Simulated scan of single mutants.
Amino acid sequence: MQPSDPLADRARGRAARTNAAGRFERFARTAEADGWDADADLPPLRTEVSEERPRTAITRNTSPDLSFDRSINPYRGCEHGCIYCFARPSHAFLGLSPGLDFETRLVARPDAPAVLEAELRARGYVPAPIAIGTNTDPYQPIERDRRIMRRVLEVLHAFRHPVAVVTKGSLVERDADILGEMGQAGLARVGISVTTLDADLSRKMEPRCPSPARRLQTIERLTRAGVPVRVMASPLVPGLTDHELEAILQAARDAGAVAASTIPLRLPREVSGLWQDWLAAQYPERVGRVMGKIRDMHGGRDYDPAWGRRMTGQGLWADLIAQRFARATRALGLAERMPPLRCDLFRAPARAGDQLSLF
Rank of each mutant, 00 (worst) to 15 (best):
P3D: 05
P6W: 15
L7Q: 04
R10G: 10
A16Y: 02
R17S: 10
A20G: 08
R23D: 07
A28P: 02
A28C: 12
R29G: 08
A31H: 14
W36Q: 12
D39G: 13
A40M: 11
A40Q: 15
P43G: 14
S50G: 08
T59G: 10
N73G: 08
G77Y: 01
G77R: 00
G77N: 01
H80E: 01
Y84I: 02
Y84N: 03
C85W: 00
A87D: 09
R88E: 01
R88W: 01
F93D: 06
P98L: 00
G99F: 03
D101F: 01
A108Q: 09
P110E: 08
A112R: 02
A114G: 11
E117L: 12
L120K: 03
R123L: 12
G124M: 15
Y125C: 10
Y125A: 12
P129T: 06
I132V: 15
I142L: 10
D145T: 12
E154Y: 08
F159P: 01
T167P: 04
S170V: 11
S170L: 09
A176C: 10
A176K: 01
D177I: 14
E181Y: 02
G183Q: 03
Q184I: 09
V190F: 05
I192M: 15
I192T: 05
T195G: 10
A199Q: 11
D200T: 11
L201E: 05
K204L: 14
M205S: 03
R214W: 06
R215L: 04
I219C: 04
E220G: 05
T223K: 09
A225P: 05
P228I: 04
L236N: 01
G239A: 12
Q250T: 09
A251V: 07
A252E: 04
A252R: 00
A255L: 00
T262H: 11
D277A: 11
W278E: 03
W278N: 06
W278A: 02
G288T: 13
D296W: 04
G300L: 15
G300S: 12
D302W: 08
A306K: 12
W307M: 14
G308H: 15
T312V: 15
Q314K: 15
A318V: 09
L320W: 12
I321H: 03
R324T: 07
F325E: 00
R330W: 05
L332V: 08
E336K: 14
P340C: 12
L341H: 06
R342N: 14
A352C: 12
S357I: 07
F359G: 14
